[in-house]
Design a protein around this nucleic acid. Structure first.
Lengths: 185, 185
DNA sequence: TATGAATTTCAGAAAATACTGAAATCCGTG
DNA sequence: CACGGATTTCAGTATTTTCTGAAATTCATA
C-alpha cells in the first residue's frame, strides 16, 4: 500500500511535466498497478476525487488510448484498465505525443513554406531546414513503429546493436570507449 | 514578416504542449528565425512582453540549453541566439526532456523497488517491469546520443536502413509493404 | 415507455500559473 | 567608490487550468 501510494503520488506530480494533470496522472498510476479493472467509483474512493473529475480523467486517458474499457461480468458499471504489455504502452505514448506535439507543427511549417513568400531569406531557410529535419525524424519513427513488438524487444535487449546498425550504412562509427572490431566494407 | 509572425504565434500556442509557456515559446521562435543575436529589449519591443517577463523567459530557455548568450561588440547589453545546427537543437531537446520527464521516475522506481516490500505481487512486478523497460530504452538512447551528428544525419537520410539494422541482429524483419530481399543467415 | 442506476456535462469555485511594474541588485566606467 | 545603464527579483494582479456539485443525459430493464 505504502509503495502503491508513493507510485501514484509520483505519477500525479510528474503529470504536469508529461502533459496531463495531477488527477489524470494518479488515475493512470492506480490503473497501471491494479490487476483487476476498476470502475469509476473504485477510483473516486481510492483517490478521493469527485466523481465528475474521475469521469473527465478517464475520458482523457481514453483519448490518449492509454486506458481501455473492460467488461466485468455481473456489474453494470464500466470498468477500466491499462494494457498489460508495456511495449504497447510505450508505443501508444510516443504515437500520441507525436500526434499532439509534432504533427501540428509540421503542417504549419509546410503551410508557411507554401503560402509565405514574404519572410527574410534567413527565416525561410530556417523554416525549410526545420521542416526537412522533422520529416526525416518522422520517417525514421514510422519505420521503427512498423517493427513488431517482439522483435523490437529483442533488439532493445541485445547489447551494442547500434554500432552494427551504423556499420550497415557503409561506415564504421566507433562508440566512445567501446571495443568493437571494425569491419572493413 | 507575416510568415515570421505566424511562426512565432504557432510556437507560442504549442508551448503549453511542449512544457513551456506562451512567452517562452514565442521568444524561442523569434530567436530561432533571427540571424543576428537579439537583446532583451529587442525581444520586448518585437513581442510586446514586459521586460521582466522576457528576462524570466530567457532564463528558462538557458536552463533548457536551447538559447545561448552571445557577445555583440560595442553593445553593453547581453544578446541571445539559438544554435545554428538543428541537430544540436534536437539532441538538446531530447536530452533535457529525458532529464525532466524520465530520470526522476526511474529514480523513484528504483527507490520503490528497494525500500518497498509491501506492495502486492502484481504491483511489484509491474514496477520492476517498468523500471527494466525504461532502463533499456535509456541505454538505447545513450548509445544513440554518442553517435556524432554528421553520421547520424547520414543515417537519417539513408533510406530503409532500419531493416538492415534488424538483420544485423541475426533476424530478418520484413517491413510492411517493403520489398527488401531477405538475407538468409 | 417509465424507472433508476450509471455516467456526462457544465457553470462556477478553487488552485495553479503566468505576467507586470517597481524596487533591488549587478557591474563596468569615470 | 559614486554613477548610471542593464538585469533580476518579487509581491501583487491577471489569466488559465483544474476541480466540484448539481442538473441533464444515457441506457438497460421491467
Amino acid at each position: 500500500m505504502r509503495t502503491e501510494n508513493e507510485f501514484i503520488l509520483h505519477f500525479g506530480e510528474m503529470g504536469s511535466r508529461w502533459g496531463i494533470n495531477r488527477t489524470v496522472g494518479q488515475i493512470y498510476a492506480l490503473l497501471f498497478l491494479s490487476e483487476a479493472p476498476l470502475c469509476a467509483d473504485d477510483i473516486c474512493e481510492r483517490l478521493g476525487f469527485s466523481r465528475s473529475n474521475v469521469s473527465m480523467g478517464l475520458k482523457e486517458l481514453q483519448a490518449w488510448r492509454l486506458v481501455r474499457r473492460r467488461d466485468v461480468p455481473d456489474d453494470r458499471r464500466e470498468h477500466f484498465s491499462t494494457p498489460d504489455d508495456l511495449m504497447t504502452i510505450v508505443r501508444t505514448l510516443i504515437e500520441e505525443r507525436k500526434r499532439r506535439e509534432i504533427d501540428p507543427t509540421l503542417s504549419k511549417l509546410r503551410e508557411l513554406e507554401i503560402e509565405g513568400q514574404d519572410a527574410s531569406d534567413y527565416a525561410s531557410a530556417r523554416i525549410t531546414e526545420l521542416r526537412q529535419l522533422i520529416e526525416e525524424l518522422t520517417n525514421l519513427y514510422e519505420d521503427l513503429a512498423r517493427i513488431e513488438t517482439e522483435k523490437l524487444r529483442t533488439l532493445l535487449k541485445a547489447g551494442s546493436t547500434l554500432s552494427k546498425l551504423v556499420t550497415a550504412t557503409g561506415r564504421v562509427i566507433p562508440l566512445r570507449g567501446g571495443s568493437d572490431t571494425k569491419e572493413a566494407n
